[in-house]
Design a binder for these strands. Structure first.
Lengths: 135, 135
DNA sequence: GTAGATGCAAACTTTTTGCAGACTG
DNA sequence: CAGTCTGCAAAAAGTTTGCATCTAC
């Protein structure tokens, strides 16, 4: 991957993204959030940066049925987000990392009984989280 | 839901869809396939019909990361496709219904340990099927 | 100074909508 | 005949691209 300069836009976008580590977000959202600040960042720039971050592996990129646009998710360094599935709340967008033992069972079952190997980074299990279910 | 007339377009689209029961497909694909025939069906008509079929529950509608457009999947009558997850091959698009006992274990685990209730019709587990893995 | 980044506007893609005319029951 | 459907063309919505300009190193 090519050399990279550190620019204001990049720094701001990265900051935003890190603060949203427990939620999915779209390019539009990032754009709006940063436009509120004094510094205005162009939407195209947001797209270019998010895509690059996704290529670098810092973000997961995916679509899901309840959204019309692509959503991104920050991958925390200490999570190896390519090795486990993600649960995503349909309502609030919160992301739960399926990092427990059970993940292995799923993987094993799908492989053994169905000959299927999961691509975690392309898969999302959508539903309702505990908090949102109560309402 | 409103009354419905039986038209040529509808019949053709339904036929196509039923023949593709083991694969996902997009509106564009349906359109192309049917345009090959003598009868030309407008793309807007395809969209309108697929959406209606999805509303009626005959099709599942979803997006996944590796596609730029919405994909549909035919729900066979004998499958209660809203109660189990689907595995989808990234490469060939084949759909595997996770109708085994294990499905209950997943559901139970997610609920018990994570307070999460799955929305099967919005979730897709993407990966590689047995056939495609070999290559 | 040079490679890389940004803003802007225009292009593209996929999907939706309005409306007039055609078809179904 | 009334209510539905369809084709067409135009509009939306989200994303990408080309290019001139600007900035980081």
């Amino acid at each position: 991957m090519a050399k990279q300069y550190t620019t204001k836009s990049k720094t701001q976008i990265l900051d935003y993204v890190k603060n949203r580590h427990d939620r999915r977000f779209t390019a539009q959202e990032v754009h709006e959030a940063l436009s509120a600040d004094d510094l205005k960042i162009n939407l195209a720039t947001v797209y270019r940066n998010l895509d690059r971050l996704a290529d670098e592996g810092l973000l997961l990129r995916y679509k899901s049925m309840d959204m019309s646009s692509v959503a991104y998710q920050y991958v925390e360094e200490n999570h190896g987000c390519h090795n486990h599935l993600h649960l995503q709340c349909k309502k609030c967008g919160k992301i739960i990392h399926l990092e427990c033992e059970f993940m292995h069972e799923i993987e094993e079952h799908l492989m053994k009984d169905h000959g299927f190997s999961i691509a975690c980074k392309d898969s999302v299990i959508v539903g309702l989280c505990a908090d949102c279910k109560e309402e």
